[in-house]
């Protein structure tokens, strides 16, 4: 079966700083992959490359078999035109650490915007889909509230609904609970768990080790721009092979 995501030999630098140095990763349909690793190891950068928010110099990223971001042209590698990039971006959904809801729109309109302007759905259909997902994340009662009138946890749930309503093949979560007050973390994790249980394919960057252990089908440990270790959660958390991973886990709360 064609994997949902296939990353081959991905390299990425910011100027002289090499941030990703040869990433290979495959995600199958229904997989829930957690990315863990210390600060600065390149987790966010990896996610942003998959969502084409960052350019990368080498390697390929395929989503459902389609190479994204670049094409070969007479032996030269070229960034695709904006329209095509935009279409490919919509194949993945992204939830950000800072929610990034559109502050001038209600929760409902936030979720509807992509459906209407990217997917070109009619207002009624878009509204129905948006309401379905807002209900799913427990935010239907607040659908007419503006982001500024919602708590961080509520905003993040709306942001997740906004991404998922686009029906992406793969959901990307970048530390979606890191900027939340501790008492709001669980309500967001519950939403992610619910989606995982439903078979949504996802790639999750998280510092919540217990959550990663519970929810993942695979855990990937990143270290200095590489994948240092990967495997099922029991193996990665239960029997780390490398000293780096053992050290990292010892310093993380489980």
């Amino acid at each position: 079966m064609t994997p949902v995501l296939k990353i081959t030999d991905l390299h990425k630098s910011f100027g002289d700083v090499k941030v990703l140095t040869g990433i290979d990763l495959t995600v199958q349909k229904g997989d829930v992959v957690s990315l863990i690793g210390s600060s600065g190891s390149g987790k966010t950068t990896l996610l942003r490359c998959v969502n084409l928010l960052e350019e990368f110099e080498r390697g390929t990223i395929e989503i459902a078999g389609e190479a994204i971001g670049y094409r070969e042209e007479g032996g030269r590698r070229r960034r695709l035109p904006e329209r095509q990039i935009a279409r490919q971006r919509a194949m993945t959904g992204m939830a950000f650490q800072q929610f990034n809801l559109f502050p001038h729109m209600t929760a409902l309109k936030n979720v509807m915007l992509g459906l209407v302007k990217t997917k070109k759905l009619g207002q009624d259909e878009a509204r129905a889909i948006a309401e379905k997902w807002l209900d799913r994340v427990g935010m239907i009662e607040r659908k007419d509230h503006f982001p500024g009138q919602l708590s961080g946890g509520q905003q993040q749930r709306v942001a997740i609904a906004r991404a998922i309503a686009m029906n992406p093949q793969l959901m990307l979560f970048d530390e979606v609970t890191s900027s939340l007050d501790p008492e709001l973390v669980q309500e967001v994790l519950a939403v992610v768990r619910d989606l995982a249980a439903d078979g949504m394919t996802m790639l999750i960057v998280t510092h919540e080790m217990r959550f990663a252990r519970d929810v993942s089908t695979k855990v990937v440990f990143m270290d200095q721009g590489r994948i240092a270790e990967e495997g099922p959660p029991e193996a990665v958390f239960g029997a780390p092979k490398s000293e780096r991973l053992a050290g990292f886990l010892a310093n993380s709360e489980i």
């Binding site: 969502n51 084409l52 928010l53 904006e82 329209r83 935009a86 279409r87 971006r89 919509a90 993945t92 959904g93 992204m94 950000f96 990034n100 809801l101 559109f102 915007l113 992509g114 302007k117 990217t118 997917k119 942001a159 906004r162 991404a163 686009m166």
Partner: peptide
């Protein structure tokens, strides 16, 4: 970036 992520053009 949130706009880009839902497939909107610049």
């Amino acid at each position: 970036e949130a706009g880009l992520a839902i497939g909107l053009t610049e």
